[in-house]
Design a protein around this nucleic acid. Structure first.
Lengths: 231, 231
DNA sequence: CATATGCTCAATAGATTACTTGATCAAGGC
DNA sequence: GCCTTGATCAAGTAATCTATTGAGCATATG
């Protein structure tokens, strides 16, 4: 049954192989690290910025990054006193997207959590990437990136303009009064676009939400502007 | 910044969402459970069969299955005194494939482990799915499924014939003497096709290996025969 | 009804993980 | 050289996870 070149038993070989792949799944087996991966999918971040974003202490964030780095999911680069982390491979985003797709299909709790935060009454309309690309071509809509400015600069959907959600209320005048706004942010579970729609609605503007974020858009091979490498 | 329908803070919302997705990654964060998923990707199994396959005790296997079931990655069906487990969704295979692809790109240790088992001297040739489909059309090769008979019956590549690796030595006469044999089994880390090639070589036959297994073939949308649903 | 089989459950010990705190380190500014 | 900032490291505690053991449950059979 076993072949001649073996220096391991078949069992030991399998153990070793699955052990290696489990390094990856173990690295992802934490809500905090999943969130870190999700944020890094937008572009690189310093440890301090990540820590604030995910609501963890600096030391704890640093240690989570260390375990992600040991599993080769992220890489670091030092710049003065700052250390910038980034995803080590675009395939990391693919794994996260696959997990997300599975959760959406299998875990009803996720839908309930989203509904609990948004309140069923909100009923914000969302559009698919296909819809959007057709409507963009027809010039019907304004595409609005509501993420922080730095993320817009690190890469954004082709044709999008930037107004971070925190500045949206005071910068409404920049948007043509009659156009429908399509707002997007980091991804399907990012709340910035929801918040942006609420602001638009409160000021009598029409707005819809793009359900996907930049990483999903990029993964689908759609046009991106201004990105630098891995986003 | 926060919108009016909220009954959770943005932070609590994110925590809840990532916590849910982490149920999936935690369920996969074990070499044993990864192997269980890999085996179930071939088709459903009883607890006892799985336990023997993965080299774990019955009780331990049952508990691993329980945690996979709680994360909605597998489902069970009772048949007499047997309980058959199967993957709850084809997307589970996609997650596993994404993890595998990432590991192959990032973890040099995996390549070394494979080389240590196979011995560098073996140098078995492998073909891609595209190669195979072209050569099959030209009638140059015999496609051989070397997995156990039950797995062949649960679904196999279109046009494949079945000789389980354990019976290959005594059933060599069934193969046309001059044809090149393309052997496949469960996937890239399954050793049955390697063992089959060693047997063929020892009897002076020409054989190559298909690097992918049935689940990968199916995921690529290529033709499968005799499968029943989720494989 | 008694028994066997296939599986699940509960209890446990040992290992691993998560987060905190405080010390330390590396690079840059004064 | 000293101080500040951003990040890492080490130690400690609480919580969680893994595999084992043995008991218990469901289904089928004699």
């Amino acid at each position: 049954m076993s072949h001649d070149g073996a220096t391991l038993t078949a069992r030991a070989f399998k153990d070793a192989v699955y052990e290696q792949f489990a390094r990856i799944t173990k690295a992802l087996a934490s809500p905090v690290r999943l969130e870190i991966v999700d944020v890094l999918a937008q572009g690189e971040r310093t440890v301090d910025a990540l820590a604030r974003e995910v609501g963890q202490s600096l030391a704890n964030t640093s240690q989570h990054l260390r375990s992600l780095k040991e599993a080769r999911l992220v890489e670091a680069r030092r710049d003065g006193t700052f250390v910038h982390y980034r995803l080590a491979d675009p395939q990391v985003i693919e794994v996260w997207r696959a997990v997300r797709a599975l959760g959406e299909r299998q875990l009803a709790e996720i839908e309930r959590t989203v509904a609990a935060y948004l309140g069923d009454a909100d009923g914000f309309e969302s559009v698919t990437a296909d819809d959007l690309q057709r409507r963009l071509a027809e010039g019907e809509v304004v595409l609005l990136d509501v993420r922080p400015d730095a993320e817009y600069r690190a890469g954004h959907l082709a044709g999008a303009r930037s107004i971070p959600v925190g500045e949206l209320a005071e910068r409404l005048a920049e948007l043509p009064p009659d156009a429908t706004v399509v707002a997007y942010c980091r991804g399907p579970y990012c709340v910035m676009s929801y918040d942006a729609l609420a602001i638009l609605r409160d000021h009598g503007r029409r707005g819809v939400r793009l359900a996907e974020g930049l990483p999903d858009w990029r993964a689908a091979g759609r046009p991106v502007q201004g990105g630098h490498g891995l986003g």
